[in-house]
Each structure stands twice: as structure tokens, then as C-alpha cells.
Design a protein around this nucleic acid. Structure first.
Lengths: 174, 174
DNA sequence: GCTTGACAGTCCACTGTGGACGGTACACGA
DNA sequence: TCGTGTACCGTCCACAGTGGACTGTCAAGC
């Protein structure tokens, strides 16, 4: 069992329905895509091995070979156990910091351009989160979903503050 | 060219020396490990293809088959161009949020344990950064290195603030 | 009817992770 | 001085993750 497999089982569980690979891929993108990316290729690969292991079971294949999967009893207990017992650490990979780390050998104006572009992306993502938060305020979403959104907002705010604290010669413009 | 390859070339460049795979792996861990992980296996794989592409050149193999590599002219220009032109976006993967996203089907006490453990890890990492910052205050390090450390601190502080803002039933203890 | 586009799934090449493994140098104690 | 343990250099492998190319199929709209 790995994190992606557990995520798929969790999605199947909380959706309370049978889902095909395509549906799972879309659902993963919207529900956990901000902090756990899952590509389509991997969804199908994981589904194949999950079925072999007996954690999910396919129903009758429908149009376009669509196979709806449902969670089995062992699948449900397995992913829950995995979540509380084998949760790995977070990983953060920030190419911009790579460029910054070698900043002394790069032209300052190019560096500033990179910094500015990245800052704008983060600002935009934060704006998106803020909108989402307003929508969720009315809807009655469980506090766990709110917590994940809150993480995103804390993160983006921190990154934006960091951009503002950059030394003047590479600080973002405009 | 990919980010890891560029990072290795950058390390070779800024070290101003010939470095073996092992030395590069260690250097990568200390200089960029906090925001760009590079495993030993990958260092050797990348070095092999970088040499094939003519971006680095091996010197005489020393003791224990150690091969010191040096950057070539084309290697230097290639990684610099890559950094300013093909820098990919950041990726963040946070398994804890996965557990939180399925929090409604998990026992609250287990969830709280996960949250608490993660909070402690982040607190420890922030403490490490703060120590490092004090050390760097005296040493005269280039502002780019400071900027990467600053990112780490902003990030860890934000995560810790987020932990404190969690709803009471899953907020970290002690 | 036919085309066109969206969709379900397959496949592949490459990147990234972690650990097992074999060989070699070297330091240190018997 | 002679092992011998240990740390180190590099190789290799299996699996996880990414992104795009590709096939076949359905369905809507002309």
C-alpha cells in the first residue's frame, strides 16, 4: 500500500459509490489535487494492483470499457490502517529556490523575472483559495475539508510574505 | 536537461572544483536538500547521462573507483539557460492532509496523534533553521543562500500557525 | 449518415526513491 | 605486521510518480 493507493480507496469510501478510473482521477484532482497529485496513468495502474490485492472489485464494464470499482471490506480497513500507521513525511520541491541558490552566477534581471512570475502565480492561487473559502462558508462542509483549504491559504500567504522580504536587487516587481 | 541535472551542474560550477558522485550527493544534501532532494542513485544516473551529453568530463579515476567530474563549457551555459528558461513549478505533497481529508472516517484520537507528531517535526525543523540563521549571521554568506533559508523559515512558521488554527477536536496536544 | 470531439483505458519513456549489493581503501587494535 | 571491521565509491534493481502518445468507442451536431 502506498499513499496514492490509500487516497484512491479513501475517495471510493467517502464517495459511497462505485467509481471508474476516469471518475476517480477527476475526483482526486478536485478533492486532494492541491496537496497530493495523482496522474491518470497512475490511477489505472494502482486500480489494477488494488484489484489484484482484493481491496477493490470491478463491476460490469459499461460503455467505452468503463469499469466501475467498489471498495471491499478488506480495502476499507487497509487504507484506514495505512493512514494512521504508515503516513510518510511531506515532500516539498521548489525549483525557484534552485535558481536562487545559484543566484550569484545568474543575471539579476533574469532572476527578478523568475521571482516575479512565481510571485504572481502564488498570488493567483491564494485568490482562488479565498474565493473557495467564501463558497464553503455557506455550504456546510466538514471541518476536515476546511482544514485542508486552510493549509493552502497559510502556505500561500507565507510564500507571498517571503517574496516581499527578498533583498531589493531580486525582489519582485510591479 | 532536468532540474536535478541542472542542480548538479550548478553545484559543480559554484564549488569551483572537481567533484565525485559521492561528494556531489553530500553537497546536494547540505546545500539544496531542504527544497530539492537528490538521492545517491540519481546522482550517479544523472552523471552518466551528463557525461554522455558532454556537459561534464571525468578526470582520472582515483581510489575506490572515484571519478572526479568537472564542468565543461557547454555544461555551464546549458544549466544556466535551463534555470532561467525552463524552471518548472513547485510541487508540494503532504500526506498528513490526505489523512485529514478522510478525517471524517478516522478516529479523532488517532488523527490528533498524527497531527501532534507532525507539528513536533515542523517545530524541530524550524528550531534548526533558527540556529542556522544565527550561524550565518556572522559568516558572510551570499544573500541568495540567506533567501533560501528564509523560505524555509517562512514555510515552517506558516505550518505551525496552521496547526494552532486547527479545530479543537483534532488540534495538536501538549 | 458522417465527422468531430470527448472520453475510457493502455502504454511507454523518463524522473524520483530507497535499499541491496560488491568491491576497495584505510584506520586501528590484536 | 597482519587482519579485519568499517566507511565509502559506485552499480543495480524494484517500485512510485509524471506526462504524453495512442487506440478504440460513444454521442452530439451538422
Amino acid at each position: 500500500m502506498n499513499a496514492t493507493a490509500a487516497a484512491l480507496l479513501g475517495l471510493l469510501d467517502t464517495s459511497g459509490d462505485e467509481l471508474t478510473g476516469g471518475e476517480l482521477a477527476r475526483l482526486a484532482q478536485t478533492r486532494i489535487g492541491d496537496f497530493w497529485t495523482v496522474t491518470r496513468s497512475q490511477v489505472y495502474r494502482e486500480l489494477a494492483t488494488l484489484e489484484q490485492q482484493g481491496y477493490i472489485k470491478a463491476g460490469a464494464t459499461g460503455p467505452r470499457d468503463a469499469r466501475p470499482y467498489r471498495l471491499t471490506r478488506s480495502g476499507r480497513s487497509t487504507y484506514k490502517r495505512w493512514l494512521v500507521e504508515e503516513l510518510p513525511a511531506a515532500t516539498v520541491r521548489v525549483p525557484l529556490l534552485l535558481a536562487l541558490a545559484f543566484g550569484s552566477v545568474l543575471p539579476a534581471d533574469k532572476l527578478r523575472a523568475l521571482v516575479t512570475a512565481s510571485r504572481d502565480e502564488h498570488a493567483q492561487r491564494l485568490a482562488g483559495y479565498r474565493e473557495l473559502e467564501v463558497e464553503l462558508r455557506e455550504a456546510d462542509v466538514d471541518p476536515y475539508t476546511r482544514a485542508t483549504l486552510s493549509f493552502g491559504m497559510h502556505y500561500e500567504e507565507a510564500v507571498l510574505r517571503w517574496f516581499e522580504a527578498l533583498p531589493a536587487d531580486i525582489a519582485p516587481r510591479s
